[in-house]
């Protein structure tokens, strides 16, 4: 059994794409939570799903179509947020349901890709193609590099936006970068854990890291490690026990989160 796993191309492709994505999600998630933008990944995931459906209808690389739609959508979200004529969450709810409605409408045009679309609803990392693996690695690497390259400015503006603005931090460009990176990550996550679980992938490991960290740097490191652990173990589990990978990954990250909460409570009660 095990030797079968190790020689399987599916398995290694999943591990490779998954681990790069894990680090990107882990880093990005911390900023999303602390900026109170976790709902953005939720809204974007529905839009990404509509993008996949459109790609399938047009019979053109669904991941690319989804990426384009999602990036445009993310800029639009940023505009809505700035105008503030609606509280941010309401605009995202409208976007999410609009995206879903578009996907359903597109499915009704050509029913025959319904099954394929289901893969994006529930995620199907073991079906990932080698082109998609490369795309995932390149994009996830880009997310990671951009976050690390702008680390200090992102931290400054997340912690204290107004002062950062006065100090000369290019706040609105960085806002754009963050939301576009979120869009990219969400599209990649869609392939791996599916629409229903993709926002969990960005939020849960970061939430776990926030329980324990003694500095911001530590939060980023822990969040990436937790995310990596959940994705790797989730893929191995699903392969070994024939469980759905997406559910295993999310269960594992929630398990890690609960363990950090429990560990923290234990530590404080022991101190008393």
């Amino acid at each position: 059994m095990l030797s079968g796993v190790l020689t399987s191309g599916f398995f290694w492709r999943a591990i490779l794409a998954g681990s790069f994505l894990a680090v990107a999600c882990g880093l990005l998630g911390v900023f999303l939570i602390l900026r109170q933008d976790s709902m953005i990944s939720h809204g974007l995931s529905h839009l990404a799903f509509a993008g996949i459906a459109l790609g399938l209808v047009l019979n053109f690389l669904p991941l690319i179509v989804s990426l384009i739609i999602c990036v445009i959508g993310s800029i639009f979200i940023l505009k809505l947020k700035k105008q503030a004529s609606l509280p941010g969450d309401a605009a995202l709810a409208i976007l999410a349901s609009g995206g879903m409605a578009l996907a359903i409408f597109l499915v009704s045009l050509r029913m025959n890709f319904g099954v394929e679309l289901m893969g994006y609803l529930f995620g199907d990392i073991l079906a990932i193609s080698s082109v998609e693996v490369w795309l995932s690695i390149i994009l996830a690497l880009m997310v990671t590099i951009l976050i690390l390259a702008n680390y200090h400015q992102l931290l400054y503006m997340t912690f204290d936006r107004e002062t950062a603005l006065v100090a000369g931090v290019k706040v609105s460009s960085l806002d754009k970068i963050l939301v576009i990176l979120t869009a990219i990550t969400v599209v990649l996550g869609l392939r791996i854990v599916g629409l229903l679980l993709v926002s969990a992938l960005t939020v849960v490991p970061a939430a776990a890291a926030l329980q324990l960290a003694r500095s911001f740097r530590q939060t980023l490191v822990l969040s990436s490690l937790f995310s990596l652990l959940a994705i790797m173990a989730g893929i191995v589990l699903s392969y070994a026990l024939d469980l759905p990978a997406s559910a295993s990954i999310v269960f594992l990250s929630i398990g890690i989160f609960l363990a950090t909460v429990g560990g923290k409570n234990l530590a404080t009660s022991l101190k008393k």
Partner: peptide, 20 residues
């Protein structure tokens, strides 16, 4: 401050030293 923001005193100051 956001009550859960995990940032050290050093990080508060250092991050500002990359602003421009």
């Amino acid at each position: 401050l956001e009550s859960k923001f995990p940032i050290t005193v050093e990080e508060v100051i250092t991050s500002s030293l990359y602003a421009s």
